[in-house]
Lab assay of single mutants.
Amino acid sequence: EPLWIRPDAPSRCTWQLGRPASESPHHHTAPAKSPKILPDILKKIGDTPMVRINKIGKKFGLKCELLAKCEFFNAGGSVKDRISLRMIEDAERDGTLKPGDTIIEPTSGNTGIGLALAAAVRGYRCIIVMPEKMSSEKVDVLRALGAEIVRTPTNARFDSPESHVGVAWRLKNEIPNSHILDQYRNASNPLAHYDTTADEILQQCDGKLDMLVASVGTGGTITGIARKLKEKCPGCRIIGVDPEGSILAEPEELNQTEQTTYEVEGIGYDFIPTVLDRTVVDKWFKSNDEEAFTFARMLIAQEGLLCGGSAGSTVAVAVKAAQELQEGQRCVVILPDSVRNYMTKFLSDRWMLQKGFLKEEDLTEKKPWWWHLRVQELGLSAPLTVLPTITCGHTIEILREKGFDQAPVVDEAGVILGMVTLGNMLSSLLAGKVQPSDQVGKVIYKQFKQIRLTDTLGRLSHILEMDHFALVVHEQIQYHSTGKSSQRQMVFGVVTAIDLLNFVAAQERDQK
C-alpha cells in the first residue's frame, strides 16, 4: 500500500453525458421521505430548503428570480454533511469501515464536522487534520463531537509532509485500522450531490432553472449537481466560483495573481482535486475576500440567511453572472454553511477592521482624538531585521541585547519573508524542534498583521487588541530589464502597544 495517494490523481470516472444510468458502476440512493420521529440526527441530513432572495437581486438590477439552496440546514450545519454520511455509508457497505475503526480526514473543517457527527452516532474514533487558518468555532464544535484535532501550517503546499493532507496520511500509516475516506478522491463525494442535492433542486424548481452558481473546494458539490442538471435540464448554465489565490478556475489566465492566501474558508485549493470535473462548468468567476464577507453580511442583514463567507462569494458572483438572465428565468445559488463557524471572524466588526474589510468610518461609535491620525505620526525608528541564514542562537542574543521581542526576517534585497519572535524561538528550542545552530528560517511564521503608514491609529489599535505587534510595510514598484514591473513589500518598522501608548501619553502631556 502506498504511503500516500495524491489528492489530485487523474480521475478514473467514466461518467458521460447521455450515458444510461443503468451502466453506472456505483451504488445510487434515492431521496427517502422522513418519518415524523427521526431514529437519529443523521436522518436530518439532506432535504434542505430552497429560499427566495428578495432584496439583493433587485438591489443589483437582476431581472431573474434568485433562489438560495440553504445547505446550513443540514444536521452539522453545512453541505459537507451529505458527503460525510455518504462516504461512511459506502465504506461500511463495501466492508472497508468496521466497528471500532478510526476515521482520519484532512479538511478545512466542515467535512470534519460532518464526519465527527456521523462518527459520534456510529461509534468510530475520528481524527481531523486541518490548517491553522480555520476558525476556532470549527475546532470547538469538533472537540465537542469527540474528534481529535491536529493543526497544520496554512501556507504548507498540499504535497508537503507538513500539509493537512501529508499529516493525515502519516497518521494513517501509524494508526492500525485507520482510514482516510479522502473527500478529494472519493466518488461518494460527487455521488452524494448527484443522487440527492441535484434531485432536490430539480424537484423544488419543478425542473425549471436557467443558471446554477456554486463555490468550489473539493469540487464534489458542483460536479455532482452539474452532471445531473446537464442530464435533466441541459439549458442550465453552470457557474463556478473560485477565490483569488486558488488555481481551480479555467482558463488558467484567471488564476494569475501574486496573491497566495485568502481568508474565506472551505473553497479554493492549490491543486485540482480528483473529484472535480471542470468540463461540466460553463464559466468560472474569481471572487475576493472583501466581496465575500460584504455579501455574507448582506445576506444575514437583508435576507435573514445566517450563512458563512463562501455563501457571500457565491452570491457576489451570482449578481454578476445572472445579469444575462431575463424576467421569468431563474438562478439558484448554493449557500454551503452557517455563520456559526465564523462568529469571531467576519461577523465581528473588530475582525473586519483588522483585516481591512471594514473602515473605521463605517462604525458610528465615538472615537478618541488620536483615532484618525496616521501611523506615520508615530515617528517610528528604523527596524531591526535579520536574514533567514542567521542562526536561532545568534538571533536570540541580538533580540535580548537590543531589547526586542520580535524581528522581521528579510532577504538580501529587503523583501519581507516573515517574522521571528523570542517566545516562538525559545519554545521551539525547548520542544526540540530546532537547535541553536539551525537557521532562523526554520522558525519563520507568517501569521502576523501588516499595516501601512497611511493607515489610521484606530486601525492599529484594533490590531493591537488581539496581537502583540504589527509590521509596518510599504510597497515598492521595481522595474526589470524586460520592461515588466513587480510590486514588493518592504519593512518600514515594527509597532507595539507600548509605542502607541507612549505616543498618546506624550501628545497629551505636551497639550497640557
Score class of each variant (00 low, 15 high):
residue 288 N to Y: 14
residue 402 K to V: 12
residue 419 M to W: 10
residue 291 E to N: 12
residue 377 E to K: 14
residue 259 Q to I: 14
residue 448 F to C: 13
residue 330 R to G: 03
residue 320 K to L: 10
residue 320 K to P: 01
residue 252 E to M: 11
residue 467 D to V: 07
residue 349 D to P: 05
residue 407 A to H: 01
residue 390 I to L: 10
residue 293 F to V: 05
residue 360 E to R: 10
residue 278 R to H: 01
residue 503 F to K: 01
residue 293 F to H: 06
residue 480 H to G: 04
residue 450 Q to S: 11
residue 471 L to Y: 09
residue 347 L to G: 03
residue 455 D to W: 08
residue 262 Y to Q: 15
residue 272 I to M: 09
residue 255 N to T: 01
residue 240 G to H: 01
residue 306 L to I: 05
residue 500 L to E: 04
residue 391 T to P: 14
residue 260 T to F: 14
residue 301 A to D: 12
residue 263 E to T: 05
residue 265 E to N: 01
residue 371 W to R: 10
residue 351 W to V: 01
residue 245 G to T: 06
residue 311 A to S: 13
residue 382 A to L: 14
residue 399 L to Y: 13
residue 481 S to P: 01
residue 417 L to G: 12
residue 314 T to M: 11
residue 416 I to V: 12
residue 382 A to I: 01
residue 388 P to W: 10
residue 396 I to G: 09
residue 258 E to V: 09
residue 481 S to Y: 08
residue 499 D to F: 01
residue 508 E to C: 10
residue 332 V to H: 01
residue 359 K to P: 01
residue 282 D to P: 14
residue 457 L to R: 04
residue 486 S to L: 13
residue 434 V to Y: 15
residue 510 D to I: 05
residue 442 K to G: 08
residue 388 P to L: 14
residue 334 I to F: 08
residue 494 V to D: 01
residue 290 E to R: 01
residue 269 Y to V: 01
residue 310 S to P: 01
residue 401 E to W: 01
residue 340 R to S: 01
residue 355 K to R: 12
residue 486 S to G: 09
residue 312 G to A: 01
residue 417 L to R: 10
residue 351 W to N: 05
residue 429 L to D: 14
residue 263 E to I: 05
residue 396 I to N: 10
residue 445 Y to S: 10
residue 435 Q to V: 11
residue 403 G to R: 12
residue 286 K to R: 01
residue 468 H to K: 08
residue 295 F to S: 13
residue 417 L to A: 06
residue 387 L to E: 13
residue 479 Y to K: 15
residue 364 T to S: 11
residue 366 K to C: 13
residue 457 L to F: 09
residue 365 E to L: 08
residue 256 Q to D: 04
residue 348 S to F: 05
residue 245 G to I: 01
residue 347 L to H: 01
residue 430 L to N: 13
residue 510 D to C: 13
residue 420 V to S: 14
residue 291 E to L: 10
residue 346 F to Y: 06
residue 473 V to Q: 10
residue 436 P to H: 13
residue 464 L to V: 13
residue 279 T to I: 10
residue 509 R to G: 14
residue 287 S to V: 08
residue 410 V to E: 13
residue 281 V to R: 06
residue 301 A to F: 12
residue 292 A to D: 07
residue 386 V to G: 05
residue 398 I to S: 12
residue 339 V to F: 07
residue 411 D to S: 10
residue 353 L to W: 06
residue 449 K to Y: 13
residue 419 M to S: 11
residue 246 S to P: 15
residue 492 F to P: 10
residue 484 K to M: 14
residue 279 T to N: 12
residue 431 A to F: 01
residue 490 M to Q: 11
residue 267 I to R: 01
residue 467 D to R: 07
residue 465 E to M: 04
residue 333 V to F: 07
residue 268 G to F: 01
residue 481 S to D: 08
residue 348 S to M: 12
residue 296 A to C: 08
residue 246 S to V: 01
residue 357 F to Q: 12
residue 378 L to N: 01
residue 454 T to G: 07
residue 414 G to P: 01
residue 391 T to S: 11
residue 441 G to N: 13
residue 500 L to D: 01
residue 354 Q to Y: 01
residue 298 M to W: 10
residue 287 S to G: 13
residue 369 W to F: 07
residue 385 T to S: 06
residue 470 A to I: 01
residue 372 H to W: 12
residue 253 E to D: 13
residue 364 T to W: 14
residue 389 T to V: 13
residue 281 V to L: 15
residue 255 N to S: 07
residue 485 S to L: 10
residue 316 A to L: 13
residue 360 E to V: 10
residue 302 Q to R: 09
residue 323 Q to K: 10
residue 489 Q to S: 14
residue 495 V to T: 11
residue 470 A to L: 11
residue 367 K to N: 12
residue 289 D to L: 01
residue 470 A to F: 06
residue 411 D to W: 10
residue 284 W to Q: 04
